[in-house]
């Protein structure tokens, strides 16, 4: 019941509530996957990593379920205005969360690969970066649950922090590779992991954009961006 007004057809409210609950559950799983994959990486815990990979299947199943529900909702109830926005946003958000889950899975998959590598110093930054990215997803999902446009706006502002983490890790890992050729393989994997986290941050921003759209019907105003590394390289 968007904006707190109940519909005459209470079945619609039920459907919508169910849909939102499914999306929220997906989100909870993705959030947990990020935290657990980074923790598995830091603890070099292969079992935990395998569990993250396994759990990702459930996110995929949920996404199919969300798609089915949205299709059914639109076909049977013909929602308009904010209801339609909400249904479409749910569909897109489910897609985004599925991607976030995939990134977390990808991080977990790299745990066995760098299992035997000696410790790489810049790795110490990863937990903080993972937390920053997971915080964004967390806040975006909170905004979704509360239909809070302002909170969604706040989330899109946090992305810069994650980008900065990525940029500094990029440099640190590059230095690490130059120091010793032995470091190249694990450093490259860590670079991908950092990139994955950075992408999670971007997707959290997309998520916030959809929440903002569903709540207000407007596209989120442009956000401040982190330093664009690619632009800097060209100079």
């Amino acid at each position: 019941m968007p904006n707190g007004n109940a519909h005459t057809v209470s079945a619609f409210d039920n459907d919508m509530g169910q849909l939102r609950a499914l999306v929220s559950e997906m989100g909870g799983r993705a959030e947990a996957a990020i935290a657990e994959s980074v923790q598995a990486l830091m603890r070099r815990d292969l079992d935990a990593a395998a569990r993250v990979v396994e759990e990702d299947r459930k996110i995929d199943i949920l996404e199919v379920e969300v798609e089915r529900q949205v299709l059914r909702l639109i076909a049977l109830r013909g929602p308009v205005a904010d209801d339609l926005r909400e249904a479409l946003a749910a569909l897109k958000i489910a897609g985004i969360i599925e991607r976030i889950g995939d990134y977390a899975k990808n991080i977990a998959k790299r745990v066995p690969i760098i299992q035997d590598a000696k410790s790489i110093e810049p790795m110490a930054i990863l937990p903080a970066m993972g937390r920053a990215a997971a915080d964004m997803v967390h806040d975006a999902l909170d905004a979704f649950a509360a239909r809070d446009a302002q909170k969604a706006l706040d989330v899109s502002m946090q992305d810069k922090a994650v980008d900065d983490f990525y940029n500094s890790l990029f440099r640190a890992l590059l230095t690490c590779m130059m120091e010793s050729p032995q470091n190249i393989t694990p450093s490259a994997h860590l670079l991908f992991i950092a990139k994955n986290l950075e992408r999670i941050g971007d997707h959290a921003t997309n998520l916030a954009e959809m929440v903002y759209f569903a709540a207000t019907g407007q596209i989120l105003p442009d956000r401040p961006r982190g330093e664009d590394m690619l632009a800097a390289e060209r100079v």
Partner: peptide
Amino acid sequence: GAHIVGEDIRLAIRHPAA
């Protein structure tokens, strides 16, 4: 948040096991 009343429990507490 006050919005959780009347919503699905999964919207209020996002935790896989829960």
